[in-house]
Amino acid sequence: MLYFLPNDDILYDALLKRDPQWDGRAYVTVRTTGIFCRLTCPARKPKRENCSFHDTVGACLEAGFRPCKRCHPMAAGGEVDPMVQTLLTQLEADTSRVWREADLSKMGFDPSTVRRSFKRRYGMTFLEMARHSRLRDSFDSLSEGARVIDAQQDAGFASASAFREAFARLLGLAPAAFSKQALLRADWIETPLGSMIAVCDASNLHLLEFVGRKALPGELKKLWQGANGSLGFGRFAPTDQIERELQAYFEGTDARFQTPLALHGSAFTKDVWRALRDIPAGQTRSYGALACDLGRPQATRAVARANGANQIAIVIPCHRVLGADGSLTGYGGGLWRKQRLIELERQYLG
């Protein structure tokens, strides 16, 4: 099925609540003002009888409505708050800086406002994002053969124990657990939706996850155990290939992924993952519809579990599965990413 809107009562309730899960997936047109908005628009809410709902910006424009100047519905993902942009620029300029709430206050920003803004937009706080950037620097240093103590200092960690703890919390393993010349190698890939970890062997991609996903530490540890500890830093040819394919995907030029995959799951789970890959970019399925596609209409919950067990994000597009009513459901990379991936893939509908 193509993406469909639920009934107007559900969408009007989402408008009143400014529910972010519908941002970029549904728009409201207001008859009395002649404008259309995101459902997260901060403006005063119109009466129910004056509202109509559409699934695309084009439909709103064709109906004769103008875009709202407060929520900017024609900007992909909404315009970036100047405060957010300022902090992102500062972070990009010095990824090793150790940020504290006092630093935000000195810049004239309210730490609680910063926390809410980043959490709403990126699914993590600014301080968490800064910590991930520092750990990324240490990851790069270790990949280049640096000693753990040097990587720790490059990342701005004064304490060796704090560095090991932060590294292990993010990746599930302490730095010393990664070996040289390993059969599996892990490296970072940057995307417009945040950093990802790719784990490959010489022939296949085994894992592709967003940094910060709760399941990532456990998934990496499981791969490490399966490879008898032969997991290291660096990349093989499949890492370069998936990085190129992700770039094309986010640029809107190609949604096909040809990188060979190593799938770790039961026969049924692998069937679900293959069915997910059969969903064209720009389309969605419900869990029930996917179960029917597999000839197992009573296996909706099993399909949902297999969907949640996917550890190769985007390539195996579990983000294309919605609730039966069209609502977003759980996504390991964060609902905000799921929402933006669905919005991004509209361009592939042709």
Rank of each mutant, 00 (worst) to 15 (best):
S138R: 01
F139H: 13
R70I: 13
E144Y: 03
R185N: 08
E165F: 07
A162I: 04
N50S: 15
M107A: 07
C68L: 11
L88Y: 00
C60Y: 04
Q153K: 15
L183E: 14
L171S: 08
H132F: 11
L170S: 12
D94E: 10
K69L: 12
A59W: 08
V80Q: 14
V84Q: 04
F53I: 13
K45S: 09
E79T: 05
A155K: 06
L104V: 04
L173Q: 11
E79I: 08
S141E: 08
L142P: 06
P42I: 04
S179K: 14
L184H: 06
V57E: 12
A158E: 11
R169K: 15
F139I: 06
S133A: 09
S159E: 03
A176W: 07
D110M: 00
Q85F: 06
R164F: 07
C51I: 09
P67R: 08
D81G: 04
F118Q: 02
A59L: 14
R136S: 08
G77M: 05
R185F: 05
R131W: 05
P67K: 07
G156A: 00
K180L: 14
A146I: 00
Q181C: 04
I149P: 03
S105R: 14
M107R: 10
C51E: 04
E92D: 15
M107S: 01
K69V: 07
T89Q: 13
K180I: 13
E49S: 12
D94Y: 03
A158L: 06
M107Q: 11
K106A: 15
L91T: 01
F167R: 01
S117K: 14
A76N: 07
R164H: 13
A162L: 14
L135A: 10
E79W: 09
G108T: 00
C60E: 10
E49Y: 15
A174P: 12
F118H: 01
R70K: 11
R185C: 05
R70L: 10
D110L: 09
M83S: 00
G172D: 10
G156F: 01
C60D: 02
A158K: 08
M83E: 09
S179N: 09
P42T: 02
A158C: 10
G156P: 00
A158M: 10
S179M: 09
I149F: 11
Y122I: 07
V80I: 13
L171C: 02
L127I: 12
K106D: 11
R115G: 00
K69G: 13
S105P: 02
S138I: 02
V114K: 01
D81S: 14
P42A: 01
R169Q: 10
T89I: 07
A76T: 09
E92M: 02
S159F: 03
H132C: 08
G145R: 05
K47F: 12
A102R: 15
A166Y: 05
D150V: 12
R121Q: 08
M129K: 15
D55Q: 15
I149Y: 05
K45L: 06
P175D: 10
F118L: 09
P111D: 00
A176C: 02
E128L: 04
F178D: 03
A63S: 14
K47L: 10
P42S: 03
S138F: 02
R44C: 04
Q152M: 14
L171D: 05
L127K: 05
S52G: 15
V57K: 12
D103L: 01
F53R: 12
R131L: 13
E165I: 14
G145A: 02
R66P: 04
L91G: 07
H72W: 11
Q181M: 06
K180C: 03
W99T: 07
S133Q: 11
P46F: 07
L91F: 02
